[in-house]
Amino acid sequence: MHQDKETPERRRERMRQQELKRNPSGSVHGGGLPDLVGSLGWKGTGILILMMIIGFIVYAVFLR
């Protein structure tokens, strides 16, 4: 895939992978939220947020 035709998402991921190769100690503590959200996509992120909200409601209503 040519660089001029790659999507911004793929370009960011490629740049992130290059940075991890140059600085491997930066990934010792895990990727954190940006890596999680980047790997899930917008649908997966929405589902994750929805599950957190539902979990909070169940906790507040039944475990109070």
Rank of each mutant, 00 (worst) to 15 (best):
M1C: 08
L33K: 11
M52G: 08
Y59P: 02
A60T: 06
G46N: 08
V58N: 02
M51H: 01
L40Q: 10
M15D: 12
I54L: 11
H2E: 14
V61N: 01
G32A: 09
M15V: 04
R14D: 07
G41W: 04
K5R: 15
V37I: 15
P24A: 06
E13C: 02
W42A: 11
Q18S: 08
R10E: 14
N23T: 11
I53Y: 00
N23D: 10
L63T: 08
I54V: 14
G38L: 08
L40I: 09
F62K: 05
M51D: 00
M52E: 03
E9R: 15
A60K: 13
K43H: 04
I47L: 12
D35H: 05
T45K: 05
R14P: 01
M51L: 12
P8Y: 07
M52K: 03
G46S: 14
G26Q: 15
L63D: 06
I54P: 00
W42N: 09
L48R: 02
T7D: 12
R22E: 12
K5P: 02
Y59I: 05
G31S: 13
L40K: 08
S39K: 15
P24S: 05
K21T: 10
S39T: 12
I53Q: 00
T7L: 14
I57N: 00
L50I: 09
D4H: 15
G32H: 07
G26C: 06
R22Q: 13
Y59G: 07
G26N: 13
S25R: 11
R14L: 08
K21E: 13
S25W: 06
Q17A: 14
K5T: 15
A60H: 01
G44D: 00
G32M: 12
G30K: 10
G32R: 07
M52Y: 02
L48C: 02
E9M: 12
G31L: 10
K43F: 07
V28D: 02
V58Y: 03
I57Y: 00
A60V: 03
G44V: 01
R14T: 08
